[in-house]
């Protein structure tokens, strides 16, 4: 068992992949908790696709791709909010429009600017084997900064995400808090791109957070349990990817889903199978089949 656990660690790329996965599991759950409590789970999908034009422009001007992706991601979230606030259009439609428009702009920019060297597949699905030690440190740095900021602004963010009108009425700068959240979400996505790719990053943000959501009754507990689930899922996904030769990003996502399924079925207070009525039916059925 122990050799089974240690063997993959002998490879530099596995050590780095696990470090980055651990870090992202924690980061995704903390930021994702806010995201799903705002009923904006799909927003991670919008931002993660909307980074493409930013990447293209950054590539063209030879500045850091991270910066380009970050700016484009934040911009897309503001566009969604603008459309939603200033019209009767609901948030889901605004997100669908924004996602596709930004993605299209990105595709066009790649052709126009001749930045075809951008490997679209790598952006979409990530490449854990291509992680450098620089990526690892950058991800850990982002995680530490965001965790610190979450701790500092915890009570304000909790108030804002629970009761935005009440928070605004008590004089909190709600637009600034929203902007801060959007920045945190975008940073998380940019940091995760390399590992799981933009298509799967939604899972890291949403999955561990909603699994914890089914099991706890306070935001801080949700973040803590979500972080543990996220970290464990990342590592379990990495190992199964190593031993069964699976694509690492997809393996992580499936472990996250497996945890969710367990909580969905067996959560003491919210589980499908723990509802008294269904529980009795199942027990009776088991007895009967004996």
């Amino acid at each position: 068992m122990l050799t089974w656990l240690i063997e993959p660690l002998e490879f530099e790329f596995m050590r780095q992949a696990i470090a980055i996965g651990l870090s992202l599991g924690i980061l995704g759950a903390v930021v994702g908790s806010y995201l799903i409590l705002q009923q904006m789970g799909m927003m991670s999908g919008v931002i993660s696709h909307a980074v493409l034009p930013g990447i293209s422009i950054a590539f063209f001007f030879e500045i850091s791709v991270v910066i380009g992706a970050f700016i484009a991601g934040v911009l897309s979230a503001l566009v969604v909010m603008g459309i939603q606030k200033r019209s009767r259009i609901k948030v889901d439609a605004a997100m669908a429009l924004t996602l596709t428009s930004f993605l299209a702009l990105g595709v066009i920019l790649i052709t126009l600017l001749g930045t075809n060297q951008i490997n679209l597949e790598e952006i979409l699905f990530g490449d854990i084997l291509g992680v450098t030690s620089g990526d690892v440190w950058r991800t850990i740095l982002i995680t530490v900064i965001i965790l610190l900021l979450t701790k500092l602004f915890y009570k304000e963010l909790e108030f804002y995400t629970f009761d935005p009108l009440g928070a605004k009425a008590s004089g909190l700068p709600v637009n600034l808090l929203y902007f801060g959240l959007v920045c945190a979400i975008t940073l998380t996505i940019v940091a995760s791109m390399q590992t799981v790719g933009v298509l799967l990053v939604m899972s890291l943000l949403v999955g561990p957070a909603i699994t914890a959501y089914l099991l706890v009754q306070e935001l801080s507990q949700m973040m803590l349990l979500g972080s543990i689930l996220g970290a464990v899922s990342s590592i379990a996904g990495m190992y199964s990817s190593y031993y069964f030769d699976l694509p690492s990003g997809a393996a992580i996502v499936m472990v996250i889903f497996a945890f969710f399924l367990l909580a969905f079925l067996f959560s003491p207070k919210q589980g499908l199978l723990t509802e008294p009525e269904i529980k009795n039916k199942v027990i009776n059925w088991l007895k009967f089949s004996k």
Binding site: F159, F162, L165, G166, S170, L172, Q217, E218, L219
Partner: peptide
Amino acid sequence: SQIDWDYPVTVERAVMMGRVA
């Protein structure tokens, strides 16, 4: 009706929000 009552917050912490500002 404006409040999301599924939000993971306890009664005490919800009242504490009155003191945040």
